[in-house]
Design a protein around this nucleic acid. Sequence first.
DNA 1: ATCTTGACTTGCC
DNA 2: CGGCAAGCCAAGA
Length: 125
Amino acid sequence: MTPFKQKVIEIIRLIPYGRVASYGQVALYAGSPRAAREVGWILNEHGKDLPWWRVINKQGYLSIRGGSTYDKSLQKKLLEAEGVEVSEDFEVPIEKYRWIITPEEAQRVKLPEDYLENKIRPMGL
DNA sequence: ATCTTGACTTGCC
DNA sequence: CGGCAAGCCAAGA
């Protein structure tokens, strides 16, 4: 269990009910802006202990692949149960539901200071 | 040690 | 819209 993994798990647990975050966003908050792929790997491994359905890709699509333990239909159901809109083709208006970390939470997970000073936001925001 | 893969993202046609 | 390459980090072969 690497520190990065621990962080990622911590971050994902911070995502509130009814909100979503992208893989890249989680990676960013965990201190490695480009480790989005690793986030997916971690979710696949620790999904059972996490609100895995609140993590989607940046374009708003549910990224789960066929072979995974989890599937899009279940994710769609779980999201809708929290009030998040999911279209027929599994697209979510992510900007509408995106979770932005608060300074308090950032401190709790020891997010490097410059992330806050520069007011770094999720990629593309 | 080296190479491939992946629930990703971005940039460049 | 769509495809493709590169970057990233860890796991497995």
